[in-house]
């Protein structure tokens, strides 16, 4: 490399004339085609600005001669997506669980749609993971007041519980204290007995007194042994699950004031497909029960 400069006429190497500590700056010219590329880019920008939406005005903008719009493109995509989904939606409405499970793709669609609908509509009361709160049932477990088959869940979603729908599920837990049907002592005894059904009570005498009150007032719905009745929405009192709490105070309060939890009827707000998807999702949360074979009276068309 050393030879290069010595061989040259010193005037051949053009510098800018600037020098710092003996270092000179070369004034190497740019290739002219580079300049043409620059002009080309300017030309491209002008053409692009004419063809595509480009110049903002105060209340509008220049729309470009091609008439392209990102907004319209997105709407087209959304339309296309709706069309894609319509295929699944038409399969979903009125389908039963076996049909849906038999088609893994449809099942996955139902799960995804159900999850999203759950987050929008159900999570407010039941929690984002359907874990429930006091008074709002946990939908993950296998304890169902109104039944845990796919058809039961879809029916509950459609008509609601103590809701505005004409066929709404309706069960009456009376306010035995407020309405003065029982005395406070009687209610306390009944509460002792109810807790004893799941081995929670230690006052055997009170619960013995309560057993008679239970037989006279409660057994008609909750059954003689307290296992409840899903047809009437009467909870099983012998299990581990307590929607309103498992302390003596909680149970006393339930008998004294009654419990009238409301689940809205969703048939007016959600499409049958969405309700089916929600039923699939909730049924698959882990507690869904197998359908009884050919159960009469179960509505198939929500």
């Amino acid at each position: 490399m050393a030879k290069k400069e010595s061989q040259k006429d010193p005037q051949e190497i053009e510098t800018t004339g600037h020098e710092w500590d003996g270092i000179e700056e070369l004034n190497t010219p740019m290739p002219r085609w580079w300049l043409w590329m620059f002009y080309g880019c300017i030309l491209w920008a002008i053409i692009y600005a004419i063809l595509m939406p480009s110049i903002p005005f105060l209340n509008s903008y220049f729309k470009g001669t091609l008439g392209y719009s990102d907004r319209a493109a997105v709407l087209e995509d959304v339309e296309a997506m709706h069309a894609d989904r319509a295929v699944y939606a038409s399969k979903l409405s009125g389908a039963n669980l076996e049909d849906i499970q038999a088609d893994p793709e449809l099942f996955r669609y139902a799960m995804a749609a159900g999850k999203s609908a759950f987050g929008d509509n159900c999570a407010t009361c039941h929690g984002s993971g359907a874990q429930g709160f006091k008074g709002y049932p946990n939908l993950n477990d296998d304890i169902w007041i109104w039944g845990g088959t796919f058809e039961d869940i879809r029916e509950t979603l459609t008509v609601g519980i103590r809701a505005a729908h004409d066929d709404s599920r309706f069960g009456l837990m009376q306010a035995y204290g407020t309405d003065e049907l029982l005395t406070k002592d009687q209610i306390s005894d009944a509460a002792h007995f109810v807790l004893s059904l799941s081995g929670r009570d230690d006052d055997a005498i009170a619960s013995l007194r309560g057993s008679e009150i239970f037989r006279d007032n409660c057994a008609s719905c909750h059954g003689d042994t307290g296992i409840g009745d899903k047809m009437q929405g009467a909870p099983n009192l012998t299990d581990e699950d307590w929607l309103y709490g498992d302390t003596l105070e909680d149970v006393y309060q339930s008998i004294y004031g009654g419990r009238q939890g409301v689940m809205p009827n969703w048939n007016e707000r959600l499409s049958p497909e969405t309700i089916t998807a929600l039923a699939v999702y909730v049924h698959a949360l882990g507690g869904g029960q197998a359908s009884a074979p050919a159960e009469p009276g179960t509505p198939n068309d929500p």
């Binding site: 929690g127 359907a130 874990q131 429930g132 993950n140 477990d141 304890i143």
Partner: peptide
């Protein structure tokens, strides 16, 4: 799953 962390079933 973190919500709920766990679920108690009817058989305990």
């Amino acid at each position: 799953d973190r919500q709920p962390n766990y679920v108690q079933l009817s058989d305990g």
